[in-house]
């Protein structure tokens, strides 16, 4: 059994959206390296509860890296210091014994803090509602194999569709831009023949909604893609720009 470790945690505490927040420092002990980051926070919360202090609130649900709920900015990086994972897949073995860990919520105008480390990401839902769908009513579909799709395009669409909507792209972008998120959905549907009919309208509406939500613009730094837990490629942004320009010029 590996040695258990001690950490100093600097965590953003904010009781609700209207009150000001501040960092607070805590200590956790006896953490085994195989503990997940969120389990480490569970341990901290047990400790806080026992002392009568309100536990640290953070979003989490599936704890297996697919629901996209967890959203912590750990030591200056979204989802912490590891590649292509979400916080729930981050394990304490990557932090040295005695390390100081700073935990912040996603910071973006479009993602206001609800409490502590919990933010409101409903802006993403509204972007999808603006056009991130194919208008087909239940029951109106043709046979699934009536629409052959080139394997390479199906795979590219799947690459883009892998987005879990966690918001790490926005969190890490120096401009808090939602281009990678929006572009992933635009790309997925643009790559498939089913999505062709509405492609122009979709690109224009989703971009307009993205702008209306108060996200920043894209500087092509590539940080979003580098920190994306699902490794979504920067090329989706180029594709969305293409879709957008084509739509604007031809409609």
């Amino acid at each position: 059994m590996e040695k258990e470790r001690t950490y100093t945690l600097k965590i953003w505490r904010q009781p609700n959206a209207n009150m000001k927040g501040a960092f607070k420092t805590y200590k956790v002990e006896d953490i085994s390296p195989g503990t997940s980051f969120l389990e480490m926070l569970d341990i901290l919360n047990d400790q806080l509860s026992e002392n009568g202090e309100d536990p640290v609130h953070f979003d989490h649900d599936c704890r297996e890296g697919i629901c996209g709920m967890c959203s912590l900015f750990i030591n200056g990086r979204p989802h912490g210091p590891d590649e292509e994972i979400t916080v729930c897949q981050l394990h304490m073995r990557v932090f040295k014994d005695g390390a100081k860990i700073t935990i912040e919520p996603w910071r973006a105008n479009a993602f206001p803090v609800i409490k502590d480390l919990v933010v409101d990401r409903s802006a993403f839902d509204r972007i999808v509602q603006a056009g991130g769908f194919i208008s087909v009513n239940t029951g109106a579909a043709v046979d699934a194999n009536a629409i052959p799709i080139q394997k390479v395009n199906a795979e590219l669409a799947m690459d883009a569709a892998a987005c879990i909507g966690c918001g790490a792209c926005v969190a890490v972008c120096k401009n808090a831009s939602a281009m990678l998120f929006t572009a992933a959905k635009v790309s997925q549907l643009a790559l498939l023949p089913q999505g062709d009919i509405e492609r122009k309208e979709r690109a224009m509406k989703m971009v307009a909604q993205m702008d209306a939500e108060g996200f920043g613009a894209c500087t092509n730094t590539g940080a979003c893609s580098a920190e994306c837990p699902k490794g979504i490629d920067l090329s989706v942004i180029a594709r969305m720009n293409r879709e957008y320009f084509t739509a604007k010029v031809t409609t």
Binding site: E104, R107, G216, T219, G222, A226
Partner: peptide
């Protein structure tokens, strides 16, 4: 526009691990 998109900045940022200095 980009400044407005992030009114509260991070206390700790390790941007060098995900993007080039020039790009930022």
């Amino acid at each position: 526009l980009n400044r407005k998109a992030r009114p509260v900045r991070y206390a700790v940022e390790h941007a060098n691990q995900n993007s080039s200095w020039a790009s930022r």
